[in-house]
Amino acid sequence: MPMALEVEGLCKSYGKKEAVRNVSFSIEEGKIFGLMGMNGAGKTTILRMLATLLRPDRGDARIAGHSIVKEPDQVRRCISYLPDEAGAYRTMKGIRYLEFIAGLYFSDEKEQAECVERGKNICGLGEALDQKINTYSRGMTRKLVLARTVMTRPRLAILDEPTSGLDVLNSLDIRKTIRQCTVEYGTAFLLSSHHMQEVHTTADCGAIMKDGQFLATGTIAELLSQYQAENLEQAFEKAVRGI
């Protein structure tokens, strides 16, 4: 299976604090990788480096064969990034927001229209798309921004805490959408989460992080087996607390 992402020795410091230390991993096309870690573990820094927003101090990553250090412009054509608790332009209508994002990725009008159509189907907001975003609930906004992330059919979708602050049903809808996109578009997902259950049910593989380093990485089954745990929550606790 071709690789959507290959990370090699990624490092990043903020002043004297080492936020990410020599991180390496890879994701196959159409697979979901879950980054698990406590607050401040370095998850968002990794995601921002892969989204070409931060420059690594050392190391590199290749997304669909393009280096994030040497070819950030090409990388941006292959990725789509959803920041933690990201909003949308509040005074825009939902549909206009999807059209705006489609316009950033495609110059051809037909491709733009197809992209928006995909976005409409993915978010499932129906007539609410004709309303302004400032009238949306948190769940609706999240569905809209997730739809704009995946409607461009990126090779790699980078999602920072995609279900953070959502109720159970909205979270379930988001997870279903993610799984559906891997099948339909072959998109690979890199998502960070505090919810072990979410990673357990959504991801194919993952990594547990602490203080900017990977403590363990592998498929979900491998992680459970490595820590002799019944679920990821147990595995995470054992890994982080060193039990």
Binding site: R48, A51, T52, L53, D73, R76, R77, I79, S80, Y81, L82, P83, D84, E85, A86, G87, A88, Y89, R90, I101, L104, Y105, V145, R148
Partner: peptide, 14 residues
């Protein structure tokens, strides 16, 4: 604050 800037800057646009 809305993190729409991050979305813009990670999009394929100069």
């Amino acid at each position: 604050l809305d993190k729409t800037l991050e979305t813009l800057l990670s999009a394929p646009i100069s």
